[in-house]
Amino acid sequence: MVPRNDAKKAIVDATIELIQESGGNTEELTIRTIAERSNVGIGLINYHFQTKENLIEASVQQIIGGVISRFKPDMDGKLNSVEQLKTVVKSVADFLAGNPSVSRISILGDLKTPKTFDNTMQTAKGFGLSLKDMNIPDKDKTLLMFMLTSVLQAVFLRRELSEELFGYHFDDKVQRDRFIDVIMNHMKWKGTDTDE
């Protein structure tokens, strides 16, 4: 058995492994399987997380947080700030489309319990790094990037209806990229060579 003070980490680590092995299909996971994998008793899982949903949400937030912290878009310096941002947004949209189960849990978790440094805000601030050369106050830049993140999340959450609602099918890479181009082209970018 895992020592009690290491149990919470062992539980989350085991849950992350199981989520990844299941391809993000969290419905297949059971508390018993998690307990066996983490080498702790079911009672400790209930003590630390109360419900399977709380445990899965905590584990998914950690997965997404790790992805965000490691995300380094390939920028060769040839693109202006807005074009760099488009590239980054498309990469994030590709991750959402490729990992729908964990992405949905992360987004809904952030909506249910918003925090200053949750994955939504980390994504927004990460988008803002592409605009470091723009002459926009940081608070305004963060707000613009939060708006962009929110639109991306909303379309992702409604991806089954996106073609009917918006004319773009989110799960189709070409259409998804076109959708992002439309959104980005209609934003006003003061302080860049693309401003009007």
Rank of each mutant, 00 (worst) to 15 (best):
L111K: 10
E53M: 07
N80Q: 08
S106A: 10
Q62I: 06
L108Q: 01
Q122D: 06
M75L: 15
K78W: 06
L29I: 11
S69G: 14
T116C: 10
G23A: 06
G24N: 02
E83H: 15
G24I: 03
Q50I: 10
K78C: 10
G109C: 01
E27T: 12
V67N: 02
I64R: 00
Q50T: 11
V102W: 03
T142M: 03
D133K: 15
R104A: 15
K115I: 01
P114T: 04
S81M: 14
S69E: 09
N25R: 05
K78Y: 07
M121P: 00
T26D: 04
Q84W: 13
K115M: 08
I107W: 00
E27S: 12
G65L: 01
N39F: 13
K72Y: 14
I56E: 00
E53V: 08
V67I: 13
E27Y: 14
I63P: 00
N99H: 11
V60K: 00
T142S: 06
E21N: 11
E57Y: 04
R37P: 05
L85F: 08
E27Q: 13
F95Y: 15
L85Y: 06
T33M: 13
G23R: 04
K132I: 09
N119T: 01
D74K: 12
G126E: 01
E53K: 13
G109A: 01
L85P: 03
M121V: 05
H48C: 12
S69V: 15
G24L: 02
R32I: 13
K141P: 01
L96I: 07
D133H: 07
G65M: 03
A35Q: 08
T51Q: 05
S59Q: 05
A93V: 07
S81D: 10
Q122G: 06
T142R: 02
L108V: 04
E21K: 13
V82D: 02
L29T: 10
K52R: 11
E27K: 15
A58Y: 01
I45P: 05
I68D: 03
D110M: 02
K78V: 10
I34Q: 00
L79A: 09
D74T: 09
G98L: 12
D94K: 13
K125S: 11
